[in-house]
Design a protein around this nucleic acid. Structure first.
Length: 594
RNA sequence: GCCGAUGUAGCUCAAUGGCAGAGCACGGCUUUCGUAAAGCCGGGGUUGUGGGUUCGACUCCCACCAUCGGCUCCA
């Protein structure tokens, strides 16, 4: 490669009509090039060539662009090697892909590598370890996060803030269990559609397990039962008299057989660790007769869900197998839908602003008409897609529309951010759903005294606490703003002579609810400051004999800034105000009235 | 799930077929010190797990598990 760069070989682009180029490619016999050429648009194909005919000449089908010549490459480095599916299709062959980076000169390359190293220091997995935020233990299970005390404070503080906001916005808190009967998810469609990414169901008996198998078989045979299905029924009938009595409508279409099996399953079924909270919330909605006067009903829960993510996908806190969504489901009339979506968009944006996450993009996920993974009618999809589009336009947000990014029950608005290495993660999400209300036959009584179908909005402004905090760690590089910092102030005594006053300072801080620690070890002040700084504690209070004499605290920040000596009470009050503002000035009462 | 790499003390990492080590952290003692690391001593390991090769395995081979980087997936 060094040689090629030294030769400064120019690249020349030329185009050839498709009719001429294809036979040539076929003659060369590179199947992938032929495939690429067939995929390419247009009537002509572009090629790049370098070197003289004969010796060292390299010619390649490529859309381009290329650097003008190899001499422009001053520095390069192979970054990593990994398998990649041909055209990103997992059913296709996997090829080896070599990732490299090239720069005009050595310095630019080194700067880039330096920058990568800096980014790695922000990695939430590393900081989570260093700052005692969370841990993952293989004996608990991959992708199952253990929140350590420091991380739990960050999460708890976020939870409390969101809770207050939910109440202000008319949400009603509910609590539901993290497990439910399998049939609940047969109705919603989560089972067996997402079977592969769910923990396997728990069956209370072998009978229930076999019946579920029968249900799955019946589902796969539209016209009539297969031999395997009938054999399974016979096996069950032999063991269970009650099943034998009913018989099995083997010649009937799937719908009828499924109905029969589900009736049996109603007595004895499996349980699923829930992959979503919506079915439980749907059942709370359905537990009362609802009037149009009651709508919208907004049921909120920090709901624990479990998804069996593929082994290669589990990643720190951002892609896990058990997580807690700041979830809620809004049940409303079609008329109320626009206002409800707008409210959800507003809350999601507010949540991001609260933590100064302003580098995000908004994606509208639409159904892929070519795919069969979606439930519900075209009309329902048309309505919900229109509602989603209208909401982002009302909010005046830049967004992209992406086909195939919808949930199986409805289109969505996603808030997407990047981690320290530029990988994208979906945080907040808002989903419009006409379909689950139908599947669960939800109604409300309208002013015409007739039952009507409500619309559902699924929404989670943060997404999940796991992913959100993971991203926050990287966003702040572990240096959380005061209101979120696990430890907000560290009292560092210079010597034992100032220990007594140091304890008084500690008490005064703790008194007003500041999260404070005292370092009364016999280390020197420099070591104490270093430790507190590395723990990214916002305020380090240096307490010596001078401070003790004057009732002062000497304040140093984790950035190394000296804020000088202040009266103890002044410091404590300033902190209280800073915490209350949550890092952003709130309008005064007078301002908020106008 | 797929491709590849990695796995040694709580953490970061040495030891390449011949007695498993260092720094930090942890415990004890000395020290009481003014803004990013005081000193001494000590405890700590079934080298991811299971098999194999070998006189002998952290080291070589196989399987599994986990992690890391991609791919695919992501309700």
């Amino acid at each position: 490669m060094r040689e090629i760069v030294k030769d400064d070989r120019p690249f020349t682009r030329y185009e050839v009509p498709r009719d001429e180029a294809m036979p040539k490619l076929r003659a060369e016999g590179n199947l992938y090039k032929i495939d690429n050429a067939e995929r390419a648009d247009g009537d002509s194909l572009s090629f790049y060539v370098t070197g003289q005919p004969g010796e060292g000449r390299f010619e390649d089908l490529c859309r381009g662009p290329h650097v003008p010549s190899t001499g422009r490459i001053g520095a390069y480095k192979v970054m990593n090697v990994a398998g990649a599916y041909w055209h990103g299709d997992a059913s296709k062959q996997m090829l080896q892909r070599v990732y490299g980076t090239t720069w005009p000169d050595k310095k630019a390359l080194n700067d880039y590598l330096q920058q990568l190293e800096e980014a790695r220091k922000r990695d939430h997995r590393r900081l989570g370890q260093e700052l005692g935020l969370f841990t993952l233990d293989p004996s608990v299970g991959p992708g199952l996060v253990l929140w350590k005390p420091n991380g739990a404070i960050v999460r708890h503080t976020l939870e409390e803030t969101i809770r207050q906001e939910l109440l202000r916005r008319g949400y009603q808190p509910v609590y539901t269990p993290a497990i439910g009967k399998l049939d609940l998810y047969r109705t919603s469609g989560h089972y067996p559609y997402y079977k592969d990414s769910q923990y396997p169901p728990l069956f209370e008996s072998r009978r229930a397990e076999r019946l579920n198998k029968l249900w799955e078989l019946a589902r796969g045979n539209e016209e009539r039962a297969s031999d395997e299905e009938v054999a399974l029924y016979n096996e069950l009938a032999e063991q269970h008299k009650d099943l034998a009595e009913f018989g099995y409508p083997a010649a009937a279409p799937a719908e009828e057989r499924l109905k029969r099996v589900r009736a049996w399953l109603a007595q004895e079924d499996g349980y699923l660790l829930r992959p979503m909270n919506c079915p439980h919330h749907v059942k709370i909605y359905a537990s009362e007769k609802r009037s149009y006067r009651d709508l919208p009903v907004r049921l909120a829960e920090f709901g624990n869900v479990y998804r069996f993510e593929q082994s290669g996908e589990v990643h720190g806190m951002t892609r896990v197998r058990g997580f807690t969504q700041d979830d809620a489901h809004v049940f409303c009339t079609p008329d109320q839908l626009p206002a409800e979506i707008n409210g959800c968009v507003d809350m999601a944006r507010q949540a991001l602003k609260m933590v100064q996450l302003d580098d995000y993009r908004v994606r509208i996920g639409l159904r892929d008409p070519k795919s069969d993974k979606y439930i519900g009618s075209n009309e329902n999809w048309a309505k919900s897609e229109a509602a989603i589009r209208a909401a982002v336009q009302t909010a005046n947000i830049n967004y992209t529309e992406e086909i195939g990014e919808a949930a199986f029950y409805g289109p969505k608005i996603d808030f997407v951010v990047k981690d320290c290495l530029g990988r994208e993660w979906q945080l907040g999400t808002i989903q419009v759903d006409y379909n689950l209300p139908e599947r669960f036959d939800l109604t409300y009584i309208g002013d015409d005294n007739q039952p009507h179908r409500p619309v559902m909005v699924h929404r989670a402004p943060l997404g999940s606490f796991e992913r959100f905090v993971g991203i926050l760690i990287e966003h702040f590089a572990g240096a959380f703003p005061l209101w979120l910092a696990p430890v907000q102030a560290a009292v560092c005594t210079v010597s034992d002579k100032s220990l007594e006053y140091g304890r008084k300072v500690f008490e005064a801080c703790a008194q007003i609810g500041l999260r404070v620690m005292i370092d009364d070890s016999d280390d020197r002040i420099g070591a104490k400051i270093r430790r507190a700084t590395m723990q990214k504690i916002p305020y380090i209070l240096v307490i010596g004999e001078q401070e003790a004499a004057g009732g002062l605290v000497n304040v140093r920040t984790r950035e190394g800034k000296q804020l000088g000596s202040h009266k103890l009470l002044d410091f404590v009050h300033a902190c209280a105000i800073e915490v209350n503002e949550r890092g952003q000035k709130k309008p005064t009462p007078a301002e908020s009235v106008s």
